[in-house]
Design a protein around this nucleic acid. Structure first.
Length: 566
DNA sequence: AGCGTAAAGGTTGAGGTCAT
DNA sequence: ATGACCTCAACCTTTACGCT
């Protein structure tokens, strides 16, 4: 029988837990089960040994990790988040996770989580590259459950779920499906027959009946929560009162909708042309979002070509794919196809984005990220630093090595060398960046990004001036912005950032962060802080890995930058 | 009957030992 | 040198108590 972990049966708190984890751990490169447990107890979303908070964590933690209750609970949550496509394991460990673009959208769908969650349920399919479960099931469980219930007269009970759809080997084998339905119908009227069948499965698979029942907790909880089924005790079927799940009108109309969709699985895509494969994956993701009420207009133009390829593959005119790639395709491939933003903002501004419009047709949280199809645009600059980056990369094929060498090389540079270097790095990132010669003080900023709408002053501190950024530099950036707004040397807007670029982040980051928050609260002005390493990281990612950042993230940067890899 | 979660298994694989 | 065997910690899964 298909195994589902059962960390809890309250779907709303399940979702709340994910929001919290995303909020607390999104800044990290990756997180593990201990990070999850920490967040859970900290926000009182889990208890252990009868205690809350730190005491719970202390009491739960033990040498044998496998017997640590919170650890195990987090593990179960992580498995469900994985199967929904919201997090992916990293390449080093199945128990190290990163959030996915799909997970970002789960958070963006906060106002109305149901439609998004339901799409994720339909997207669950085995086998997949995200979560291995025992048994060789080729099964889209929730669709199969819906179909089974319909075939059984719009109603199904827990034990029928166990012996029927959750034990089906291959749901696309019509014969198998029909045989299952036939047998299910034949045992109806005899509850003991049904129990015998269940016992048989328990014995054959060496799984206790208790456990089989536990496996249905998550499916049953979400089937009811989604509105597809409603509880009803009935005694007309087995001659005694048994809780049943009745298909609702909503479940019924969903089935009708699904019948017009084409169920594509990863296994179907192994031999298709790479271009078509990519098109189907992209389309699968965006169509899933669209069905979950996301507004696709920002990516419409890009989807057109994918649609042509997909139509040719499906050999049909209107393609509506039942295929959720984040729940099925190798994490590595997905991360390449759907880079999450290279820049993620500081937690304060993230919170702001999370509380987007209350419309039903909300926009995705990171609309512009959606438009970065695959690789970034390749443009070359005639800058010395670009040649230098390319040369080192050619030699080492290692992005980190490139960065570290350059950090070492420019550690002692002065204004004359450092200012143009920073300007060139911004040029690589696609900005028209000009630097002011040192000593020229009618322009008080050290460099400026010139744009028709969003010009940005940049305060630079060369390592010769100060290795670690200081609070003073932040104040200067504020001054730059004020002068920018009042004298209008270049077109810009109030909410556009004023940047500070230094060699290393300030030593006292919290002081700097607080000051930046104060500036924002008092004057509604944003200061963004970037260190040399982060800038190099973005530039090298763009040059050698074809990864691109979202410009609006930089243009509105507030606080200390955190560049993370998708 | 259903739920949270405590508590208890089992499995795996790296690194070692030993006999061939 | 090779491979069979061993050990242990880390990892992963299952079971079911005790409450409402």
């Amino acid at each position: 029988m298909l195994r589902f972990p059962n960390p809890g049966s309250d779907v709303d708190s399940f979702i709340r837990i994910f929001y919290k984890l995303h909020e607390e751990l999104n800044q990290q490169q990756a997180f593990d089960l201990d990070d999850m447990s920490r967040v859970l107890v900290k926000s009182n979303l889990a208890t252990s040994s009868g205690y809350m908070g730190q005491e719970a964590l202390d009491r739960s933690t033990r040498d044998d990790r496998s017997r640590d209750p919170l650890y195990n609970q987090s593990k179960m949550y992580s498995e469900l988040f994985k199967i929904l496509g919201w997090i992916h394991p990293t390449s080093n460990s199945a128990l190290n996770f990163t959030f996915t673009l799909m997970g970002d959208h789960a958070v963006a769908a906060k106002q109305n989580p149901k439609s998004f969650f339901k799409q994720c349920l339909l997207g669950i399919v085995y086998p997949n590259a995200i979560l291995k479960v025992t048994g060789n099931y080729a099964l889209r469980p929730f669709v199969t459950i819906l179909r089974t219930a319909q075939a059984l007269g719009d109603t199904i009970c827990r034990d029928e779920l166990i012996v029927g759809p959750l034990c089906l080997q291959d749901d696309r084998d019509i014969g198998q499906f029909n045989k299952m339905i036939e047998r299910l119908l034949s045992v109806r009227t005899s509850f003991s027959e049904l129990q015998r069948w269940k016992a048989e499965i328990s014995h054959n698979r060496q799984i206790q009946p208790n456990t089989l029942e536990n496996y249905t907790r998550f499916p049953i909880a979400v089937l009811k929560w989604s509105g597809w089924f409603r509880d009803q005790r009935r005694s007309d079927i087995y001659g005694r009162s048994i809780p049943f799940l009745n298909l609702t009108d909503e479940g019924e109309s969903l089935l009708k909708a699904i019948s017009h969709q084409i169920d594509v699985r990863a296994s179907d895509l192994t031999n298709v042309h790479p271009e078509t494969r990519v098109a189907l994956i992209r389309l699968g993701f965006y169509r899933t979002l669209e069905r979950a009420n996301f507004d696709l207009s920002p990516v419409k133009s890009g989807l057109w070509k994918d649609e042509q390829l997909a139509n040719a593959y499906i050999k049909s005119e209107s393609v509506n794919l039942l295929f959720s790639p984040f729940q099925e395709i190798e994490p590595r491939e997905m991360a390449e196809l759907f880079p999450r933003e290279v820049i993620s903002e500081t937690s304060t501004s993230l919170n702001r984005i999370h509380t987007v419009s209350a419309n039903i047709r909300y926009k995705p949280q990171r609309a512009n990220v959606l438009m970065t199809f695959g690789s970034g645009n390749v443009h070359t600059t005639q800058t010395p630093i670009e040649s230098e980056i390319r040369a080192i990369y050619q030699e080492t094929s290692n992005q980190n090595e490139v960065i570290e060498r350059l950090v070492g090389k420019y550690k002692t540079s002065n204004q004359n060398e450092f200012y143009p270097l920073i300007a060139d790095l911004f040029k690589i990132l696609g900005y028209d960046c000009q630097y002011s010669r040192a000593g020229v003080n009618y322009e008080r900023w050290d460099a400026v990004i010139v744009d028709e709408h969003y010009s940005i002053p940049i305060e630079i501190k060369s390592p010769g001036e100060e290795l670690f950024l200081s609070v003073k530099a932040i104040r200067q950036a504020l001054e730059n912005k004020i002068v920018f707004l009042s004298r209008q040397p270049y077109r810009t807007e109030q909410d556009v950032t004023s940047l500070v670029v230094g060699f290393y982040f300030p030593n006292d980051r919290s002081e700097v962060q607080t000051l930046i928050d104060d500036f924002y609260t008092a004057y509604n002005l944003s200061i963004g802080v970037i260190d040399f390493r982060s800038l190099l990281y973005m530039a090298t990612a763009q040059l050698v890995l074809m990864k691109t950042h979202r410009k609006s993230d930089l243009v509105r940067l507030r606080g200390i930058i955190n560049v993370s890899d998708s």
